[in-house]
Amino acid sequence: MSHNGLPSPSAAASAAATADTTSAQAEPVVDAQDVTRHYVLGKDTIVEALRGVSLTVPPGAFVSIVGPSGSGKSTLLNLLGALDRPTSGALRFSGRDVADLSDAELASLRNTDIGFVFQQFHLLGRTPARDNVALPLVYRGESRRERRRRADEALDLVGLAHRRDHRPAELSGGEQQRVAIARALVSQPRLLLADEPTGNLDSQTGSDIMGLLQDLNAQAGVALVVITHDPEVAALAPVELPIRDGVLDQERATAGSLVPPPAVTAPPPPAEPDDSVASQRPPSQAEAAEEPPTR
């Protein structure tokens, strides 16, 4: 349906559905094919946290993965974030198979291509916001000056430039999560992974944060995968994937899965409004205020 060179928009579609339409021009940010993850707890106890999951995330996509506690969401996110390796199956980042990458190469991949946003924020307590944001840049040997400059830019992007010298304890929960988002953005990743990003926030702050993430996805073109047990949060994504007992429910994936993802480049050209997506999104105040151009 779209002929602008984008890969198949189907984040949820099975490998069979995507294989023939995938263009070489834009590799999927991450591509999981039939991955499993088993935790060996004892001699006879194996937890099958993931049992054969296939998922393709094209550049700029926004996918939510929703499921109850213990369904394997975090396990999947660890794999998508190159924090962990699958027990079986193929997992590729921009075409590179994790099986071929050393631990140091995975670390470097996380550093340059992936941004994490956690439920517990995970900020360094004694460290001012600006240095928290700059942390990923430390691991690529950037000079202090350059780190500060880019951290300030990222803080500006999340609207917290005026809080850059504050320590986490001096910030509200919502502000802390914004600092964490700035940290995830500072390395200009291709993929933003958020594990229950609103889980520790009240509903109003939560929807502000979701609005911010959506804007970043839409404007900066960074692919966004949000993991949540909250159906309302999940419904914000054009592609909504239920997960249960370590299996993605492809049948019940939302119709939005066949809709093209938002623009891939930043700043994006105004795209045609897509009613099928818009109709599935509950209104968000943050969105209303910001007017992302992709709708």
Binding site: G81, L83, D103, A104, A107, S108, R110, N111, T112, F116, H122, L124, L135, P136, Y139, R140, R183, S187
Partner: peptide, 10 residues
């Protein structure tokens, strides 16, 4: 966290 942000083992 540091590892998630790109710190290597060394």
């Amino acid at each position: 966290l540091r590892k998630a942000l790109g710190a290597r083992t060394r």
